[in-house]
């Protein structure tokens, strides 16, 4: 079988896997960003125990392999009762543990991106805002954050793209994502190379679309803010 035959015979496997990959990616990016904002706030807190906790969190997550984190979350949090039912055709109880692990992982990187973006805004901007009678919160909201967003966005886009690719490890928990289905087709055809090419194309397509979306968003921001 050549690559075209494999694709025509087994495309529904790749599509089904891609659907799971998209769902897991979207939820992970969403949860990871929220959790990441939260960790960034802790990290920037002037209250030592909070910033210390955030620092520890980031160090541990960045210093251990994602695969190890995936298994630890899976076995450590087995007592959680995940909701029944399906989300876009994917079983919630099955995908929640890997989504949690990926989100916890992503949050550490997102937090660092946000922290760096905020700290890259010149301290003079905050001082000027404060000298105009703004509170710390107002200075953050009206002056610092709008400028920080422009530093954060390109780097966070990178993190999103990385996350889409890293979801491929959830196959180790038996989740029927793109790589898991890739394995099924490899076993069925005894012809691995074309399968991997097909999977690569699917991942590439997802990230090209994601990248385009992020670009459009960035351009809009630039136009409105100059």
């Amino acid at each position: 079988m050549n690559i075209a035959d494999i694709f025509l015979n087994y495309y529904q496997y790749f599509l089904r896997g891609t659907r799971t990959t998209i769902v897991v990616s979207l939820v992970t990016v969403f949860l990871g960003s929220i959790l990441g904002c939260f960790v960034a706030l802790l990290r920037l807190s002037r209250f030592r125990p909070l910033s210390g906790f955030a620092r520890l969190y980031i160090t541990v997550i960045r210093g251990t392999p994602l695969l190890v984190q995936l298994y630890i979350v899976y076995y450590q949090l087995h007592f959680i009762h995940y909701p029944e039912g399906t989300f876009l055709g994917v079983e919630l109880a099955r995908i929640m543990p890997p989504i949690l692990a990926l989100s916890i992982n992503s949050a550490a990187y997102v937090a660092e991106v946000i922290r760096a973006g905020i700290q890259a805004v010149d301290a003079g901007q905050t001082e000027a805002a404060l000298s105009c009678g703004m509170t710390q919160g107002q200075a953050m909201r009206y002056i610092v954050m709008p400028q920080a967003i422009k530093n954060i966005l390109p780097a966070i886009g990178n993190e999103f793209i990385t996350m889409v690719k890293e979801t491929s490890i959830i196959q180790y928990l038996g989740i029927s994502d793109l790589m898991y289905n890739n394995g099924i087709v490899v076993t069925a055809t005894y012809n691995p190379l074309p399968c991997y090419y097909i999977s690569a194309m699917f991942y590439l397509a997802l990230n090209v679309i994601l990248g385009k979306g992020l670009n459009i968003f960035e351009m809009r921001l630039k136009r409105s803010e100059r």
Binding site: D122, G124, Q125, E127, A128, A129, L130, S131, C132, G133, M134, T135, Y142, I143, P146, Q147, E225
Partner: peptide
Amino acid sequence: KTHRHREKVGMVFQQFNLFNNL
């Protein structure tokens, strides 16, 4: 309240510090 005090005390900086996003 520090921010109330600063309302009454205007400040001009060496590096201008105009809000770049506005």
